[in-house]
């Protein structure tokens, strides 16, 4: 279980994380809804160890990991844009985390091959990142992050820059892989539908404060999340259509 307690972070006088506390049980996905500038990127980077918190503790399985450097945390941060290493092939990008851990060559080959199959990228294995489409790049970034089974995935609006169709395909792929590998993840998004589709648990973030909901229903009922507004919109359209039909 990932447990965060009273994380506080300010840049000079500007408070970015205001005593954030949250728990994510192993194998579950916490969807965090928030608009840009709410502090979600800072939250994820703090968890990944890329930014030191001013106060508060981060625990994994009951042990504090505040002092553990990013490379030993096994919490992979996925940037908004798929940041692939431009000089490495798709294969080597995916293999990166294994190579870093000095995994034997035979194992690297078999693991990467099966990941490529999983991502439907077999025929692109030897291509360089600049020869791929946006969706393909995001898939590679994904595969690269989960291949060595890290403790936690930290996803920062990973599908925000994709077109609607690719986006929905990626959401399905993420769900399938998350179930298959039992991934624990914090998934930050500004899209209500995406949050509902992907999360096991739900949270809402605004101005550095994070609200955790007991259930999906509680999340949907809170006017701040905008779920009700969205529902009302679709209802009114449906209503219009049915009245026009008459």
């Amino acid at each position: 279980m990932l447990s965060i307690q009273h994380i506080h972070k300010a840049f000079q006088l500007h408070t970015v994380l205001d005593h954030v506390s949250v728990e994510v049980p192993e194998g579950q996905v916490l969807a965090v809804l928030g608009r840009s500038g709410c502090g979600k990127t800072t939250l994820l980077k703090t968890l990944a160890g890329l930014l030191p918190p001013d106060a508060g503790s981060i625990k994994w399985a009951g042990e504090s990991i505040n002092e553990v450097p990013p490379r030993e945390r096994e919490m992979v941060y996925l940037f908004q844009e798929p940041l692939l290493f431009p000089h490495l092939s798709v294969f080597e990008n995916i293999a990166y985390g294994l190579r870093v851990r000095k995994t034997p060559e035979a194992e690297v080959q078999s693991k990467v091959q099966s990941m490529l199959r999983e991502l439907e990228l077999q025929e692109h294995a030897q291509k360089k990142p600049d020869q791929l489409s946006g969706g393909q790049r995001q898939r590679v970034a994904f595969g690269r992050a989960i291949i060595f089974l890290p403790r936690v995935l930290l996803l920062d609006e990973p599908f925000a820059s994709l077109d609607a169709q690719t986006r929905s395909a990626m959401q399905k792929l993420f769900l399938r892989l998350a179930r298959k590998y039992g991934i624990t993840a914090l998934f930050v998004t500004h899209d209500v539908k995406e949050a509902l589709l992907i999360g096991d648990r739900f949270a809402y973030m605004a101005a550095g404060k994070l609200t955790l909901y007991r259930s999906k229903e509680a999340f949907m009922d809170d006017p701040a999340t905008g779920v009700q507004e969205e529902l009302a919109f679709w209802n009114s359209i449906e209503h219009n259509i049915s009245t026009n039909d008459k």
Binding site: A48, G49, L50, P69, P70, R71, E72, R73, E74, M75, V76, Y77, F79, L83, F85, Y96, G97, V100, R101, R144, A145, F148
Partner: peptide, 12 residues
């Protein structure tokens, strides 16, 4: 950012 990415993937 690439450098940070490499770090979180476990590289020294």
């Amino acid at each position: 950012q690439l450098e940070q990415q490499s770090q979180t993937l476990g590289a020294s």
